[in-house]
Amino acid sequence: SLEGTEKASWLGEQPQFWSKTQVLDWISYQVEKNKYDASAIDFSRCDMDGATLCNCALEELRLVFGPLGDQLHAQLRDLTSS
């Protein structure tokens, strides 16, 4: 749920159509929501749009996002199937 936050830029759009900015917004949101240590994320490797993100295998997401990769992968699957 997104109570208390302004409507996120990526909400209501299919992930494969996200811009690079929307991807970063979504990642930041997941980091906050999961109380994850953002210093463990290599943000220089997050410079990708939604289509690229959706094409990432779980292993790739783990490389870039560490333990949060599993969470991101699961969330993406939910978003693309809805």
Results as ranks from 00 to 15, higher is better:
residue 1 S to T: 14
residue 1 S to L: 05
residue 1 S to I: 02
residue 2 L to R: 04
residue 3 E to A: 06
residue 4 G to N: 02
residue 4 G to P: 08
residue 4 G to E: 12
residue 4 G to K: 12
residue 5 T to A: 03
residue 5 T to R: 14
residue 5 T to S: 14
residue 5 T to V: 07
residue 5 T to F: 11
residue 6 E to S: 10
residue 6 E to M: 13
residue 6 E to D: 14
residue 6 E to W: 12
residue 7 K to T: 06
residue 7 K to G: 13
residue 8 A to L: 05
residue 9 S to I: 05
residue 9 S to Y: 04
residue 10 W to R: 03
residue 10 W to P: 03
residue 11 L to V: 06
residue 11 L to F: 03
residue 11 L to D: 08
residue 12 G to P: 08
residue 12 G to T: 15
residue 13 E to G: 09
residue 13 E to D: 06
residue 14 Q to L: 11
residue 14 Q to S: 14
residue 14 Q to C: 14
residue 14 Q to A: 08
residue 15 P to V: 06
residue 15 P to C: 02
residue 15 P to I: 03
residue 16 Q to T: 02
residue 16 Q to Y: 03
residue 16 Q to P: 06
residue 16 Q to F: 05
residue 17 F to A: 12
residue 17 F to K: 15
residue 18 W to A: 00
residue 18 W to G: 00
residue 19 S to Y: 02
residue 19 S to L: 02
residue 19 S to H: 04
residue 19 S to C: 14
residue 20 K to V: 06
residue 20 K to C: 08
residue 21 T to M: 04
residue 21 T to R: 11
residue 21 T to S: 15
residue 21 T to H: 09
residue 21 T to W: 06
residue 21 T to V: 06
residue 21 T to P: 13
residue 22 Q to S: 05
residue 22 Q to R: 02
residue 23 V to M: 03
residue 23 V to G: 00
residue 23 V to N: 02
residue 24 L to F: 15
residue 25 D to L: 04
residue 25 D to V: 03
residue 25 D to Q: 11
residue 25 D to P: 00
residue 25 D to K: 03
residue 25 D to H: 15
residue 26 W to E: 00
residue 26 W to P: 01
residue 27 I to A: 03
residue 27 I to T: 01
residue 29 Y to L: 04
residue 29 Y to D: 09
residue 30 Q to D: 00
residue 30 Q to F: 00
residue 31 V to R: 06
residue 32 E to G: 06
residue 32 E to W: 09
residue 33 K to C: 10
residue 34 N to G: 07
residue 34 N to M: 14
residue 34 N to V: 08
residue 35 K to I: 03
residue 35 K to R: 13
residue 35 K to G: 15
residue 36 Y to N: 04
residue 36 Y to Q: 10
residue 36 Y to D: 07
residue 37 D to A: 09
residue 37 D to T: 11
residue 37 D to K: 04
residue 38 A to R: 10
residue 38 A to Y: 13
residue 38 A to M: 06
residue 38 A to G: 10
residue 39 S to K: 11
residue 39 S to F: 02
residue 39 S to Y: 06
residue 39 S to N: 15
residue 39 S to H: 02
residue 40 A to R: 14
residue 40 A to I: 08
residue 40 A to H: 10
residue 40 A to Q: 13
residue 40 A to P: 09
residue 40 A to F: 04
residue 41 I to A: 05
residue 41 I to S: 04
residue 42 D to N: 09
residue 42 D to A: 06
residue 42 D to T: 10
residue 42 D to Y: 03
residue 42 D to F: 01
residue 43 F to C: 13
residue 43 F to M: 14
residue 44 S to M: 10
residue 44 S to N: 02
residue 45 R to S: 14
residue 45 R to M: 12
residue 46 C to M: 15
residue 46 C to N: 08
residue 46 C to Y: 06
residue 47 D to T: 14
residue 47 D to W: 04
residue 48 M to S: 01
residue 48 M to Q: 02
residue 48 M to F: 15
residue 48 M to L: 11
residue 49 D to V: 04
residue 49 D to Q: 02
residue 49 D to G: 02
residue 49 D to N: 05
residue 50 G to V: 00
residue 52 T to P: 00
residue 52 T to G: 10
residue 52 T to R: 11
residue 52 T to Q: 06
residue 53 L to R: 00
residue 53 L to P: 01
residue 53 L to S: 00
residue 53 L to I: 09
residue 54 C to N: 05
residue 54 C to F: 05
residue 55 N to S: 09
residue 55 N to F: 04
residue 55 N to A: 12
residue 56 C to P: 00
residue 56 C to A: 13
residue 56 C to Y: 08
residue 56 C to W: 08
residue 56 C to V: 13
residue 57 A to R: 09
residue 58 L to M: 13
residue 58 L to T: 06
residue 58 L to W: 05
residue 58 L to E: 03
residue 58 L to G: 09
residue 59 E to Q: 07
residue 59 E to D: 04
residue 59 E to S: 12
residue 60 E to W: 04
residue 60 E to V: 03
residue 60 E to Q: 08
residue 60 E to Y: 13
residue 61 L to Q: 01
residue 61 L to I: 03
residue 61 L to G: 00
residue 62 R to L: 13
residue 62 R to D: 06
residue 63 L to K: 15
residue 63 L to Y: 15
residue 63 L to A: 10
residue 63 L to R: 13
residue 63 L to V: 11
residue 63 L to W: 07
residue 63 L to S: 08
residue 63 L to Q: 11
residue 64 V to M: 14
residue 64 V to S: 13
residue 64 V to H: 15
residue 64 V to P: 03
residue 65 F to Y: 05
residue 65 F to G: 01
residue 65 F to I: 06
residue 65 F to E: 00
residue 65 F to T: 02
residue 66 G to L: 00
residue 66 G to P: 02
residue 66 G to C: 01
residue 66 G to A: 01
residue 68 L to R: 02
residue 69 G to Q: 01
residue 69 G to R: 01
residue 69 G to C: 05
residue 70 D to G: 07
residue 70 D to F: 06
residue 71 Q to E: 12
residue 71 Q to V: 13
residue 71 Q to M: 08
residue 71 Q to K: 12
residue 72 L to I: 07
residue 72 L to N: 00
residue 72 L to C: 02
residue 72 L to W: 01
residue 72 L to E: 00
residue 72 L to F: 05
residue 73 H to N: 07
residue 73 H to E: 06
residue 73 H to P: 02
residue 73 H to I: 02
residue 74 A to E: 06
residue 75 Q to G: 14
residue 75 Q to E: 10
residue 75 Q to V: 07
residue 75 Q to S: 12
residue 76 L to S: 00
residue 76 L to V: 09
residue 77 R to W: 04
residue 77 R to P: 01
residue 77 R to L: 09
residue 77 R to D: 03
residue 78 D to H: 10
residue 78 D to T: 13
residue 78 D to M: 05
residue 78 D to V: 11
residue 79 L to A: 06
residue 80 T to N: 15
residue 81 S to A: 09
residue 81 S to D: 03
residue 81 S to N: 15
residue 81 S to E: 05
residue 81 S to L: 09
residue 82 S to K: 05
residue 82 S to V: 06
residue 82 S to Y: 15
residue 82 S to H: 15
residue 82 S to C: 14
